[in-house]
Every structure is written in structure tokens, then in C-alpha cells.
């Protein structure tokens, strides 16, 4: 389990409502308002996108919206920085391939 339930200093972590969303079509849950990347991490998702030329995997790197490693396709829009974009109910989150939504053949 990657979620911290009870922290020795911070106590119980305050979270929003538990909501459903999809990752590459698969249903997952996360807390409303937390970064999409946090919900994905808690679900064990490591790869957010593949680079354009060399198809190398990228995941969370800076977690503060600066490096763009974590961008994904969210609700049909590409290049969404998932580490700073709050999770909403029913979001459609997809791995990004280069600068497109489609996995290259």
C-alpha cells in the first residue's frame, strides 16, 4: 500500500471524497482534489508517458509542475501536468505517446 494512513507527525492525512476515474480505460479510485499523479502513484502506476523520438518511459520527477515529465492525456487534452492537476470524478486519464494520444503501431 503506497498511501500513508497514519503519519507519526502529520496524523491522519486529510483527503477529499473518494471518486472513480479511468486510467487507459481501466477504472481506478482516488481522492478528489489530490493531484492526478498522486492517485496514479497510489494505484502503482509508474509510467505517465513515452517520449516522442526514443519512446522512453517517463514518470513523476519534480512533482511541482516544472519538468513536464508527468504529462498525460486527460479528458482528451494532451500535455496535462498530472502532478499539479487536481483529480476530478470521472476523469479519463491516458498514457501519452510523444505528443499524441495514440499508441504508435
Amino acid at each position: 500500500m503506497l498511501r500513508i494512513e497514519n503519519h507519526p507527525i502529520l496524523g491522519e492525512i486529510q483527503k477529499g471524497r473518494l471518486v472513480r476515474f479511468t486510467f487507459d480505460g481501466k477504472e481506478l479510485t482516488g481522492y478528489e482534489g489530490e493531484p492526478i499523479a498522486a492517485a496514479l502513484k497510489a494505484a502503482g502506476v509508474m509510467v505517465h508517458r513515452y517520449t516522442t523520438k526514443r519512446h522512453e518511459p517517463r514518470g513523476v520527477f519534480c512533482a511541482i509542475g516544472r519538468c513536464t515529465d508527468c504529462v498525460m492525456c486527460v479528458n482528451g487534452k494532451i500535455n496535462v501536468r498530472t502532478c499539479v492537476t487536481p483529480l476530478e470524478e470521472g476523469m479519463d486519464v491516458r498514457t501519452q505517446y510523444g505528443v499524441s494520444r495514440q499508441k504508435p503501431e
Partner: peptide, 25 residues
Amino acid sequence: WTLPGVMGAGAAQTMINLHGVLPGK
């Protein structure tokens, strides 16, 4: 160094202390 799982220490600190999620085990 670009593999998912390599990250800044600040990123790990953000994940655990602000979002309550472990970066890994």
C-alpha cells in the same frame, strides 16, 4: 536517470508530506 522511479528529493518530500503517498518502498 530518466526512468520513472528516479526523482528529485523535493518531489519525494512533496508526495509524502503534502499528498500522503509514498514514492516507492
